[in-house]
Amino acid sequence: SASLEDVKTAVLGLLVILQTKLYTLPASHATRVYEMLVSHIQLHYKHSYTLPIASSIRLQAFDFLLLLRADSLHRLGLPNKDGVVRFSPYCVCDYMEPERGSEKKTSGPLSPPTGPPGPAPAGPAVRLGSVPYSLLFRVLLQCLKQESDWKVLKLVLGRLPESLRYKVLIFTSPCSVDQLCSALCSMLSGPKTLERLRGAPEGF
C-alpha cells in the first residue's frame, strides 16, 4: 500500500504534465506521457489490482482522460474550469503507423480551432504528436469488463456518452463501437458483474 501511494503521486504528476505538454513542443512528450498513463491502467486490469488506493488511481486517471476532446481538424483539447475547450495546435487524435513515428509534419500553421486557440506554431513546419484515442478506448473496454470498484465504473459510464459525442475521437483511430456495445450488453446481462463490484448501489 505504501508503494502504491508513491505510484499514485507519480500518476497525478503525469496527469499534470500531460495537461501542460498537450499545448507545448515537442509534441512527442505529450504522446509519451499519454502512453505511460494508459499502459499503467492496463496493468491494473492485467494484474487485478483491487486495493482501494489502486481504485483511486484509476478513478483520477479516467476522470482526466475522459475529458479529452477533439475538433473537426482532429486536434485534441481539454475543457477549462468554465467548460470551454482549448484545442492544441500540436497534438492530434489520429492513429499513425509505428514506422512513421509518433509525430508527423505539417507544412505550416493550422487553421484556427473551433475553441480558444493555443499558442501559434513558431516555425514554418510543426511536428504534430499522435495521441490516438484507441489506446484509451481499449482500456475503457477492459474497465467495462473487469472493473471491481463501483465508483470507477460509475465515472466511466457517466463520462462515456459525452466523449462519444466527439465522433472524430472514435473514427480517426481503430476504435470498435461494436466491441463497446458488446461490453456494455455483457456488463448488464452477465451474472458476474454484481459479484465483482464493490460498493454498487442496492438494486443495481
Results as ranks from 00 to 15, higher is better:
S1E: 15
A2Y: 08
S3H: 10
L4I: 07
L4D: 02
L4V: 11
L4T: 07
D6S: 05
K8D: 04
T9D: 06
T9G: 06
T9H: 08
A10W: 00
A10D: 01
A10K: 00
A10T: 01
V11D: 01
V11R: 01
L12Y: 09
L12T: 15
L12K: 15
G13P: 00
L14K: 00
L14Q: 02
L14I: 06
L14D: 01
L15C: 13
L15G: 13
L15F: 13
L15E: 13
L18G: 02
L18N: 01
Q19R: 14
Q19S: 09
K21C: 04
K21H: 07
L22W: 03
L22H: 02
T24Q: 15
L25M: 11
P26T: 04
P26K: 02
S28E: 15
S28W: 14
S28K: 11
H29M: 07
A30V: 09
R32D: 03
E35W: 08
E35Y: 11
M36H: 03
L37D: 01
S39K: 08
S39W: 11
H40F: 00
I41E: 00
L43P: 00
L43W: 07
H44V: 00
H44M: 01
K46A: 14
K46P: 02
K46G: 07
H47M: 14
S48Y: 12
S48M: 10
S48K: 10
Y49M: 03
Y49V: 03
L51S: 08
L51M: 09
P52R: 05
I53E: 03
I53Q: 04
A54Y: 04
S56D: 14
S56H: 11
I57H: 00
I57Y: 01
I57M: 06
R58C: 00
R58Q: 00
R58M: 01
L67K: 14
L68I: 13
L68R: 03
R69E: 04
R69P: 02
S72R: 15
S72G: 08
S72N: 08
L73G: 09
H74C: 06
L78P: 00
L78D: 03
L78V: 10
P79W: 05
P79T: 06
K81F: 09
D82R: 09
V84D: 12
V84A: 10
V84Q: 13
V85A: 07
V85K: 04
V85T: 13
F87Y: 12
S88Y: 02
P89N: 09
Y90I: 09
Y90W: 14
Y90E: 04
C91Y: 11
V92D: 04
D94S: 09
M96T: 10
M96A: 15
M96C: 10
E97S: 11
G101K: 09
G101M: 11
G101H: 15
K104N: 11
K104V: 15
K105A: 15
T106Y: 13
S107F: 13
G108K: 14
G108I: 13
G108M: 14
G108T: 13
G108E: 10
P109S: 13
P109Q: 13
L110M: 11
P112V: 13
P113L: 15
T114S: 13
G115V: 14
G115T: 11
G115C: 12
P116H: 15
P117F: 10
G118F: 12
A125C: 15
R127S: 13
L128M: 11
G129A: 15
V131C: 15
P132S: 06
P132N: 07
P132E: 05
S134A: 07
S134R: 04
L135V: 11
L136R: 01
L136G: 06
F137K: 01
F137R: 01
R138H: 13
R138N: 12
V139C: 15
L144H: 00
L144W: 00
K145F: 07
Q146C: 12
Q146I: 09
E147F: 00
E147V: 00
S148N: 09
V152E: 02
K154M: 07
K154Y: 05
L155I: 11
V156Y: 00
V156N: 00
V156C: 05
V156H: 00
L157W: 00
L157E: 00
R159H: 09
P161S: 13
E162L: 09
E162G: 08
S163N: 11
S163F: 07
S163H: 07
L164G: 01
V168L: 06
L169M: 11
I170E: 03
F171P: 04
T172D: 04
C175G: 07
C175K: 05
S176K: 12
S176R: 09
V177M: 12
V177D: 00
D178N: 12
Q179F: 05
C181R: 01
C181A: 10
C181E: 04
S182F: 06
A183K: 03
A183P: 01
A183M: 06
L184A: 04
C185F: 09
C185A: 06
S186L: 08
S186K: 15
M187V: 07
L188A: 08
L188C: 13
S189A: 13
S189R: 11
S189Y: 07
G190F: 08
G190D: 15
G190I: 08
P191N: 15
P191V: 11
P191C: 13
K192D: 15
T193P: 10
L194A: 10
R196L: 06
R196Q: 08
R196E: 04
L197I: 12
L197D: 02
L197M: 13
R198Q: 10
R198K: 14
R198P: 03
G199T: 08
G199D: 11
A200D: 06
A200C: 14
A200S: 11
A200Y: 14
P201L: 04
E202G: 08
E202L: 09
G203P: 07
F204R: 03
F204H: 04
